[in-house]
Design a binder for these strands. Structure first.
Length: 239
DNA sequence: AATCAGCTCAACCGCAGGTTG
DNA sequence: GCAACCTGCGGTTGAGCTGAT
């Protein structure tokens, strides 16, 4: 029996894998990830396939910088729901929970560090509140495994550190978000969308195709005979 | 031009909840 | 009711990019 760790590929997805995944998701839908992973011949877990699809390949995804409106919405919804990223993402069409999570993390770390900077080093960590993690949102961070509870020597902030800083600095995250938003002296520029990868045009053409399975299959065969043969061999045993 | 530090974001992991047999 | 499996979520990591020095 093969070791599972040998069986599945990890790391960055290749263009070919992307096209293959798009192909099979279009055929079988974006629900049965384990099945899609198996029949596609991708040596990836269903989980990995789902993540790639949801965070990168989904046709409705926006790319590029968050707009001020989106930033505002994220802050507002986070104040309301805490770290319910997927819930927040549902209110921002084209944005993923991962993207929002990353944005928030960057945003709050920046804010915490800016708050910390003017303070003297001694006053920053000896606050009376440091022992309690009772911010409005800690209830939502139950999944934390505690790996990153300590502020690192290099100044890295874990989520807990961020919450602590926010808590200590008196920034009430639940207060009307407009205050937080407009107090930031940020320059909101409209950047052009990021340049699309060259292969995106080919993906687009895939999406413009009908859901004709035979078409999809022949496409897969033409493009990636080896992968498809592999997939088909597992397919026959599954279907 | 080279190096370094900070930032971004894709991808992983572990866990929890849902579904199925 | 229960175990096994699958899916989705939230937290974390690290490679690569970018700007500063």
């Amino acid at each position: 029996m093969k070791n599972v760790q040998e069986e599945y590929r990890k790391g960055p997805w290749t263009e070919q894998e992307d096209i293959l995944l798009v192909n099979f998701v279009h055929t079988f839908g974006d629900r049965r990830w384990d099945f899609v992973a198996k029949v596609s011949g991708l040596n990836r877990t269903g989980k990995s396939c789902r993540l790639r699809w949801v965070n990168y390949l989904h046709p409705g995804l926006k790319r590029g910088k968050m707009t001020p409106r989106e930033e505002h919405l994220v802050l507002e919804l986070h104040a309301k729901w805490g770290n319910r990223w997927s819930k927040i993402a549902k209110k921002l069409p084209g944005r993923t929970d991962n993207e929002i999570k990353n944005y928030w993390r960057t945003h709050m770390r920046k804010q915490a560090q800016e708050k910390k900077r003017p303070m003297s080093p001694t006053s920053s960590s000896s606050n009376c509140c440091s022992s309690s993690m009772t911010t409005a949102t800690t209830q939502d961070t139950g999944g934390s495994n505690g790996k990153m509870n300590q502020e690192r020597d290099d100044g890295y902030y874990s989520m807990d550190d961020i919450w602590r800083e926010i808590d200590q600095s008196g920034t009430n995250i639940v207060k009307p978000v407009k205050d937080i938003y407009y107090s930031e002296q940020r320059c909101y520029l409209n950047f052009p969308p990021l340049a699309s990868p060259a292969w995106e045009s080919s993906l687009e053409s895939i999406w413009n195709m009908g859901a004709d399975e035979s078409k999809m299959s022949s496409f897969a065969i033409d493009q990636f005979p080896l992968s498809f043969e592999h997939g088909r061999s597992s397919w026959s045993s599954l279907v």
